[in-house]
């Protein structure tokens, strides 16, 4: 399943709208890139990208890192997500994201994620999150958790 995970952002409308894509997947780790766009500015005076883009990007990558850590496909749902903003993203530059699922229990997956332009030494934002690993259910009841 790790082989076709990059297709998942294509199948996620909000991810497609923001335009981010997956660039690399390893066991329990996912990398992606969020291209710059002034459609997502958050500060009318400076044009700096809105944090909501980073929230969406890192949430998505973190969920995928859980997928990349699991032996078999399971749906995961974000329980909570914390983002710390270290510095504003530079205008006009792509943002690189990286997420690691660093611990798995039977029901919960824990993740760390980073957003940066060049390297993790100069990070734009960090995220930590917990995900509930949904039980395998019959498709008819897949909507509830």
């Amino acid at each position: 399943m790790r082989d076709n995970m990059h297709l998942m952002t294509q199948m996620t409308p909000w991810a497609r709208r923001l335009g981010f894509r997956i660039t690399r997947i390893e066991r329990a780790q996912v990398w992606g890139v969020q291209p710059w766009s002034d459609a997502f500015s958050g500060d009318p005076d400076t044009g700096v990208i809105h944090g909501g883009v980073i929230t969406s990007f890192l949430d998505n990558l973190s969920g995928m890192a859980c997928g990349a850590a699991l032996e078999q496909f399971r749906a995961v749902a974000t329980l909570d997500l914390r983002i710390d903003y270290m510095r504003p993203a530079d205008q006009g530059r792509d943002i690189i994201g990286e997420a690691h699922c660093y611990n798995l229990t039977r029901t919960i997956a824990f993740t760390h994620a980073w957003a940066y332009h060049e390297s993790r030494d100069k990070v734009i934002a960090t995220a930590s999150a917990a995900f509930a690993i949904n039980k395998i259910r019959a498709p008819s009841s897949a909507g509830s958790f």
Partner: peptide, 10 residues
Amino acid sequence: HGGAIGAFLE
């Protein structure tokens, strides 16, 4: 999408 909800809340 959780990110859309998060962006909206922010």
